[in-house]
């Protein structure tokens, strides 16, 4: 018994050693004075601790502008240290692009600073934030320790704002969620697309309105055609010098919504839809199978309603 206990303790110790809760964030320059922390194109796991998202910061003349704060308190704290390793300038503002937990649960680490979001994003965080956090605890485990919802205290609206000596263009779109903020930094040519664009990873749809999202993608693509455009930073996946991630996201959403409509029209049941193979074009996209499964749950009921002639 004693020996068995010893073995168990060793196993536990081994596990503790493997997880040091260090996201190993390193700021990657994506344009002049603009840096990003690029997450993995995976699902939330206890291995990645939720580091599946892109966050970023702009080193502006009088301070730093942070765009999204990551999935946990630890992430926010480590991000703050990683920013300090790049610049001594103080952080002037933290922006949340939308109300998904991997984009705002690091806010707590910036609680002493102004945090801003669109009004609807703020309302969404207030309404769903705790449920999101609970869900991430389940999926990412102890990486989430101590994480609580920190609401943005400031409300943003579309238009030009000046922050820390930098002119930013805020474009308020929707479709991935009810409010998706795109930040255009003219000085560097970076378009921060949030989760309207995914690159090399299947898009997530828990709060999606696909019709609105497709319209937003057209507007986003127009931004990449403006003179001065240099880099598109998607919410997930590597940055891009062209509209590639927008086209990928559009292709997935177009296929997905057409697939839901035709399945419902053909009389398929939800289990029939879940059993359908992914087209070759998407089968090898990271997390395509799991995002497809989730999206069937999110999107098929509405398609079904329409096919059965029900009032929405």
């Amino acid at each position: 018994m004693k020996r068995l206990l010893g073995v168990l303790l060793l196993l536990v110790a081994g596990q503790l050693q493997a997880v040091d809760f260090d996201y190993r964030l390193s700021a990657r320059p994506i344009a002049k004075n603009v840096y990003a922390f690029i997450g993995k194109t995976e699902d939330f796991t206890t291995d990645n601790g939720g580091n599946i998202v892109n966050t970023a910061f702009i080193v502006a003349p009088q301070g730093v502008i942070v765009i999204d704060s990551g999935p946990s308190l630890r992430y926010g704290q480590q991000m703050r240290r990683a920013i300090a390793a790049v610049t001594a300038k103080p952080i002037a503002l933290v922006i949340n692009t939308h109300h998904h937990p991997d984009h705002f649960l690091g806010n707590q680490a910036f609680a002493d600073l102004p945090i801003a979001a669109l009004a609807e994003t703020r309302d969404g965080i207030a309404a769903d934030g705790n449920a999101f956090a609970e869900n991430l605890y389940r999926m990412s485990g102890d990486w989430m320790k101590g994480t609580e919802v920190q609401l943005p205290g400031r409300t943003l609206s579309a238009g030009i704002v000046e922050v820390a000596g930098r002119r930013l263009r805020l474009v308020a779109l929707d479709g991935h969620t009810g409010a998706d903020l795109v930040v255009v930094d003219a000085a560097s040519g970076v378009v921060f697309a949030g989760d309207l664009a995914f690159n090399g990873r299947a898009p997530t749809t828990p709060h999606a309105d696909v019709g609105h999202w497709l319209k937003a993608l057209d507007q986003l693509e127009a931004l990449t055609r403006e003179t001065g455009f240099k880099v598109l930073l998607p919410g997930h996946g590597v940055p891009s010098a062209d509209a590639g991630p927008i086209r990928q996201t559009r292709a997935w959403l177009t296929w997905l919504s057409a697939a839901m409509r035709s399945a419902a029209k053909d009389g398929l049941d939800m289990n029939d839809v879940l059993a359908r193979p992914l087209p070759a074009e998407f089968a090898r996209l990271p997390v395509a199978a799991s995002e497809y499964r989730r999206s069937v749950g999110h999107l098929f009921p509405a398609a079904e309603l329409q096919a059965l002639g029900a009032k929405p």
Partner: peptide, 16 residues
Amino acid sequence: SGRQWSDGPNAGRLRM
């Protein structure tokens, strides 16, 4: 609300 399918791969199906 509901429908029946009389032809195609799901002929005979009723959904409600």
